[in-house]
């Protein structure tokens, strides 16, 4: 292992990221690198394991019984299926999630292509599970996109919340799964809401994957890999 200043810098940054010491901007920039640099993810994972050892010094303390009852009632009472059930499964984890991603909810109506609506709106049918959802936001919030995979139509819905490609350039959407190179899901047209077909080979790789938007020449990357800057990233969350 070498000890060049760059390597040391990455080790320190990964430690700061794992503890949560970076500013939101720094954290977002680091997260963008994490999406495409497996070595960096390994550093964060090692730090996370190391620091978790510190928690061994914390004395366990039995919580009052009503806490578990509260968990059960929040999770399991009320309709297990239907819009409310899905609403809970998506919105609760997002509301409590850390703030790198913008909490946003996306429900599609499989019978009406392109329709994107707010949760809880009458008549909106949630997509059949499994569904994955991701929020992509640029470091400076100049680009904000949301994506949701509908297993029924096997399409990725992408909603533009803010920002467009630079003049003479396009935005291309990528799926990054594990240590594999990014795979293109297509160039985003200028529409506010689009659906991109997800090839069969990629469907099993959505779970645990990361979506990324890159800056590309018209027509998309000529090489099959991102050629421009990675502008925004977001992990696909299991809904």
């Amino acid at each position: 292992m070498t000890n060049t200043p760059d390597k040391d810098e990455d080790r320190v940054l990964a430690g700061e990221y794992a503890i949560g010491l970076l500013t939101p901007d720094e954290a977002a920039a680091f997260a963008a690198r994490l999406a495409v640099e497996p070595d960096l993810r390994r550093l964060v994972r090692q730090w996370t394991e190391d620091f978790a050892c510190l928690a061994e010094d914390i004395e366990p303390e039995t919580p009052p019984a009503w806490v578990q009852a509260g968990v059960d009632s929040r999770l399991f009472s009320g309709p297990a299926r239907g819009p409310l059930g899905v609403f809970r499964r998506v919105v609760v984890p997002l509301m409590t999630a850390a703030s790198l991603v913008v909490a946003l909810f996306l429900v599609s109506d499989p019978g009406a292509p392109g329709v994107v609506s707010d949760p809880g709106a009458p008549g909106v049918q949630p997509p059949a599970p499994p569904v994955y959802q991701a929020d992509l936001e640029a470091e400076d919030s100049s680009l904000v996109f949301s994506a949701g995979y509908d297993a029924t139509t096997r399409q990725m819905y992408v909603e533009r919340r803010q920002g467009t490609a630079r003049p003479g350039r396009v935005l291309e959407l990528w799926l990054i799964a594990d240590d594999n190179p990014p795979v293109s899901l297509g160039v985003l047209p200028d529409n506010a809401r689009v659906r991109l077909p997800v090839p069969e080979a990629l469907r099993d790789r959505l779970e645990g994957g990361v979506l990324a938007l890159s800056d590309e020449p018209p027509g998309g990357s000529p090489t099959g890999a991102p050629t421009g800057a990675v502008l925004a990233v977001g992990p696909l969350m299991d809904v």
Partner: peptide, 22 residues
């Protein structure tokens, strides 16, 4: 405002290597 925190859940890091016993 200072500092931020991240979901480790967001890091889709692969493989259970480098585990250590507690």
């Amino acid at each position: 405002a200072d500092g931020d925190l991240h979901e480790m859940l967001a890091d889709s890091a692969p493989g259970p290597e480098n585990r250590m016993s507690e």
